[in-house]
Amino acid sequence: MSFLQIRNLEKAFGNVKVLKGIDLDVEEGGFLVLVGPSGCGKSTLLNSIAGLETITGGSISIGGRVIDGLHPSQRDIAMVFQSYALYPNMTVAGNIGFGMEIRGVPKPERAQAIASVAEMLQIGHLLDRKPSQLSGGQRQRVAIGRALVRKPQVFLFDEPLSNLDAKLRVDMRTEIKRLHQRMGTTIVYVTHDQIEAMTLATKIAVLKDGVLQQSGTPAEIYNNPANLFVADFMGSPAMNLIPVKISQNGSGVTISTHREDQEPLVLGVPNAPSGLSAHDGKEVIFGIRPEALTDRDGADRNARDIVESECLIEVVEPAGSDTFAVTRLGQKHVTARLRADANVAAGKRAKLAFNLDKAVFFDPASGLRIA
């Protein structure tokens, strides 16, 4: 049985529906990350779990206890905000221990809890400082520490790293992951950063316009997107989505698409989804990740179906450990992820290897994946 259960959750502001029948389950100790574009409802969903928003319909339960009508203080949750929300007139120790003081926790017990959390977050040397004397990363650690001392059943994080610079975000991301592995507490985490979602989550929920598009492990979301929105939204660079025409050839299927200044690209798809044959003679969307479109020597040696084809390279983008090459297929810019030392040049043709084991196909009308 799941630990955090969300059933048919709805939230409306006036006549505007923000959440439209959300169903989610999180196991105890799980790390659920909510992702989606601005305005999709992810922060509203988090605030609904916290009790900061009154839900319009559905139910939320934690550990088998329905919490819909409970005050936030009675839900046994702790929240870390984007803005840190520290008391400027208190020291770090005061900020971390304030909630315990309000609840009447004895001073020796408070001091022990503050010291333990400060050691875990490596901020023991900052306990006597005020928030104004701290860096952004240090303030975020204090905000996390304030949540940790409560030992709640569920932690809620609302884009906690968005105010930090790029390097500090990576460092704090690692710290949060290490913290979760050490404590094993259930976490619900909101972010617009896909890298955060992929690296932190045990489960990802992708939202759009208040509707849950797909939920699953990071690998499921990345490799088996349920629809065009998820395929395009998750991944950086995004999945290549190319219009292709389907041709049934005996027991096999081929796909073809237009190329600039070249013959059409024609690829055989040996292990095509069974539903693809129903689209014979029609156009579908062929999805392939940049890392599944690479140079011959960089292709996955364990792949069953690698097909090579020469393509005109329009742009080359060196990126340190990788080289990204942009070509055009089906009048779409298509990105290939090559080895750092791949021999490619803009304006020249190069052989690209298509790993068709990783290919996915979508119905252009419904946007749903063809299985």
Score class of each variant (00 low, 15 high):
Ala353Thr: 12
Val269Trp: 12
Val117Ser: 09
Glu310Cys: 07
Tyr189Lys: 15
Gln153Ser: 14
Thr44Arg: 07
Gln122Phe: 03
Gly69Leu: 15
Leu164Ile: 14
Gly210Lys: 12
Ile306Cys: 04
Leu9Thr: 10
Phe354His: 00
Ala143Arg: 12
Arg182Cys: 00
Arg301Thr: 11
Ile255Ser: 08
Gly298Cys: 07
Gln194Cys: 02
Ser274Glu: 15
Val190Cys: 02
Ser277Tyr: 13
Met234Thr: 13
Ser277Asp: 14
Val66Pro: 07
Ala238Trp: 00
Tyr222Gln: 01
Ile313Leu: 00
Leu164Trp: 09
Ser277Cys: 04
Glu27Trp: 01
Asn227Val: 12
Ser61Leu: 13
Ile221Pro: 00
Gly367Asn: 06
Val190Leu: 08
Leu293Gly: 00
Arg75Ile: 01
Val190Glu: 01
Lys351Trp: 15
Ile306Glu: 00
Leu356Ala: 00
Gln140Pro: 07
Leu164Ala: 07
Leu46Pro: 05
Leu127Trp: 01
Phe233Ile: 03
Pro131Gln: 10
Leu148Pro: 12
Val33Lys: 02
Ile242Asn: 15
Ile313His: 14
Pro270Gln: 15
Ala340Ser: 14
Ala345Glu: 06
Val80Pro: 10
Ile144Cys: 02
Val142Pro: 06
Gln262Val: 05
Leu267Lys: 11
Ser2Ile: 04
Met100Leu: 15
Pro88Met: 10
Arg146Trp: 10
Arg110Asn: 03
Gly63Phe: 09
Ala147Tyr: 08
Asp295Glu: 11
Pro237Met: 03
Thr91Ala: 09
Asn271Glu: 12
Gly136Gln: 09
Gly124Cys: 13
Ala50Gly: 15
Met183Arg: 12
Glu310Leu: 08
Val18Ser: 05
Arg103Gln: 13
Asn355Trp: 15
Leu200Cys: 01
Glu308Ser: 12
Gly330Trp: 04
Asn163Thr: 09
Arg304Gln: 11
Asp158Thr: 06
Gly216Lys: 15
Asp357Lys: 01
Ala345Cys: 11
Glu196Met: 14
Gly275Ser: 10
Pro225Cys: 09
Leu4Ile: 06
Ile22Phe: 00
Gly63His: 02
Arg337Ala: 07
Leu34Asn: 08
Lys282Leu: 09
Lys358Gly: 00
Arg65Ala: 09
Asn223Thr: 03
Lys11Ala: 02
Gln214Glu: 10
Gly94Met: 04
His180Lys: 11
Leu164Arg: 05
Ala365Pro: 04
Leu207Gln: 04
Thr202Lys: 08
Ala12Val: 06
Asp232Met: 02
Asp23Trp: 02
Gly41Glu: 06
Gly30Phe: 00
Gln248Thr: 14
Leu368Asp: 05
Val149Gln: 00
Arg337Ile: 01
Gly210Arg: 11
Glu28Phe: 01
Arg369Thr: 03
Ala201Ser: 07
Glu314His: 14
Gly210His: 04
Val334Pro: 08
Val33Ser: 01
Arg337Thr: 06
Ala345Asn: 03
Asp305Pro: 05
Asp23Lys: 10
Gly51Leu: 10
Pro237Ala: 07
Ile55Arg: 13
Thr44Ile: 04
Ala231Trp: 00
Val35Tyr: 07
